[in-house]
Write a protein that binds this DNA or RNA. Structure first.
Lengths: 172, 172
DNA sequence: AAGATATGTCAACAAAGCTGACGTATTCGA
DNA sequence: TCGAATACGTCAGCTTTGTTGACATATCTT
């Protein structure tokens, strides 16, 4: 089978439906790697990793989130979460508030420093993504790119993003 | 762009340029997670992880690749690569051929089983991506989505994908 | 023959995921 | 009111996949 390109193109007989689209797959892989790479460099300065970033991001995005909600969004175990959460609290980027109606809950909030870092990271990533959107053809193209990303996700998660990264079971 | 967080919306004074686009960031995160999740389930059956997938993918995509070229594409250390490469060779998914003009080189090729698995995984991911492209508005929208992904990547990597996932220093 | 290059390997470590078990505080429900 | 369920935290140990640093071997280049 001829490699390097031939099988990613439509054949004359029209049977290209189940031929893998290697270009698209690899674009997604490399794009995501560079996308997270931006933040990685900043996080190094703080002694944090990607796991810290994800936790900080969602807490900053939706202050007052509980631990259970965060676990739902991240889909990791509480042990994994606790390791990084403890560090974020210890270094003063997140604070835990006792739930008012249910005192078992810990409402997670970013501190000032936490919000600053989260915003800084989000701006960095936004800059790259917006620059990429500019490569799309007009506002229709930009909207297409946004719809594409939403459509790649499983439907359950897609609802969450549109509703502000809220876990499905909470967002109803 | 009705997001759901005050800080993601354009302000009346028009200063929305450096406000983070949380929706876009999270779409990318969740989309990538679900995208790789498809393959993870299959890989489990073989006792392989994501690292094996990446190696197998690029070897299947460009048979005859050398170890150095693979390292260039993946951007990991030879020790990390060797661990998974050894397993892929041991289980009969990749074979190593001695370079003809330079016998120090190991030309990596997928075996029949390797090619089958690589294609199966690529088809699974292609199915999801193509379904997502269908959510874009027409062929112009689909092209916009493709351009978006290429534009998110660092330019160096983008050249590689267009040239068949070839590392920059080889593809010239 | 000397030095550079391509690859492989040993050892040790780190990040971030996992399972299983167990403890404590709090709330809920019969 | 009391026992079960829930929310959270923690201890211990394991896995995958990345990292450094050191060193060995074969081969090519000069």
């Amino acid at each position: 089978m001829p490699r390097s390109g031939v099988e990613t193109q439509a054949r004359p007989d029209g049977g290209s439906e189940d031929l893998p689209d290697y270009g698209l797959i690899e674009s997604f892989f490399f794009a995501y790697r560079d996308f997270v790479g931006d933040a990685d460099r900043i996080l190094l300065e703080y002694g944090f990793g990607r796991a810290h970033h994800r936790v900080l991001h969602f807490v900053a995005r939706r202050p007052g989130m509980t631990v259970a909600e965060l676990l739902d969004v991240l889909r990791i175990t509480k042990q994994s979460l606790n390791r990084v959460l403890k560090e974020l609290v210890g270094k003063g980027f997140i604070r835990q508030e006792e739930g008012r109606d249910d005192r078992r809950r810990r409402l997670l909030h970013p501190t000032e420093a936490g919000r600053d870092l989260a915003v800084r990271l989000a701006q960095l990533q936004t800059r790259r993504l917006r620059a990429a959107l500019a490569a799309c053809d007009g506002s229709a193209g930009r909207e297409a790119a946004r719809r594409f990303l939403l459509a790649v996700m499983d439907p359950r998660g897609a609802r969450g993003v549109q509703d502000g990264a809220r876990p499905a079971r909470i967002g109803r």
